[in-house]
Amino acid sequence: MSMSIQGRTAIVTGAGRGIGLAVAHHLVERGANVVFADRDEAALETVVADYDDDAHVLTFAGNMSEKLVMANLLSATLDSFERVDILVNAHRFVQGSDPLDTDPAVLEEMLRQNMICGLRLSQMVAKRMIRQAEDQRDLTQAGAIVNISTLAAIRPVPAMLGYSIACAAQEQATRGLALALAPHKIRVNGVSFSSVMSHELKLALKATPDLRDQIIAGTPLGRIAAADELAETVHYLVSDAARFVTGQILTVDGGRCLADPVTAQVL
């Protein structure tokens, strides 16, 4: 089955930098109409500056934690492209938290930014996808949603307990929404990553020079992947090649989740 997404319309959140930006660029290059959504308006203007006027791209700046902003994002998408076929929730917010004295406000913010926002936007977009399929009487494929998570969901980091909990909650939300939307022919999947060059990892590598060697040593494939490699996984999940795949969390981590951290240091 073809992986073509030519002419389909995608919304990508967190598209101002890092993983979200890589995914949005990749989908544009594969012929999709893409809405780059992020709260950083200046970053959005920079990342789309090199596109020709003929490129089917749209930028949307706003705080995705606000329901009205989500509604405006969907409206802007429909005004420009008349439909939405793909949603990639790539927005992430990372903040440390004391595992023994977690500030409730920090935990609530982690859950809101990394799970609740994506869930609400998915619900809103899914309703539109359902209406589109009904109008066109398309009973085979109504749309695809992908949530971006990290290995913290199954390998908790004590210093970022709130973020780890939020990632785990997001992955469970992915599975639950996949079941709920399957009768409507909307597929919902997740991508969990580690050892991939995200915006946050770039900052961490600058702050901790030895971190690169530690990550590589703990990754069986022995390197840090480019963000484009994760984008290719997202492309597969939103294409017809994955038409019978839903409720799955695909891990892109070079085998890191398989490695015993102690063994990795000894061998």
Rank of each mutant, 00 (worst) to 15 (best):
P99E: 11
A55D: 09
G62L: 04
V84W: 01
V84D: 01
F93M: 12
I130R: 03
A133Q: 05
R120M: 13
L58D: 03
L121D: 13
A49M: 06
A142E: 07
M64A: 03
E109I: 13
D52K: 04
L121F: 14
S80T: 15
V88S: 02
G143C: 03
D85C: 03
M115P: 00
A126L: 07
Q136G: 01
D52G: 10
Y51C: 04
I130P: 03
E108F: 06
I116P: 06
R92I: 10
L107N: 10
F81I: 08
E82Q: 07
A90P: 13
T102K: 06
Q132C: 03
D98M: 12
G118W: 02
N114E: 06
H56Q: 09
G143I: 01
N147H: 15
Q141E: 00
A90L: 11
N89S: 10
L87P: 10
A142H: 05
L107Y: 12
F81T: 07
A144G: 11
Y51D: 02
I148S: 06
L74W: 14
V106P: 02
G62I: 04
A126M: 05
A71H: 07
G143N: 02
R120F: 09
L111G: 02
L121I: 12
H56Y: 00
E108N: 12
E134D: 13
D101L: 10
T140E: 08
L73P: 04
L119V: 15
I86R: 00
D103Q: 12
M115K: 03
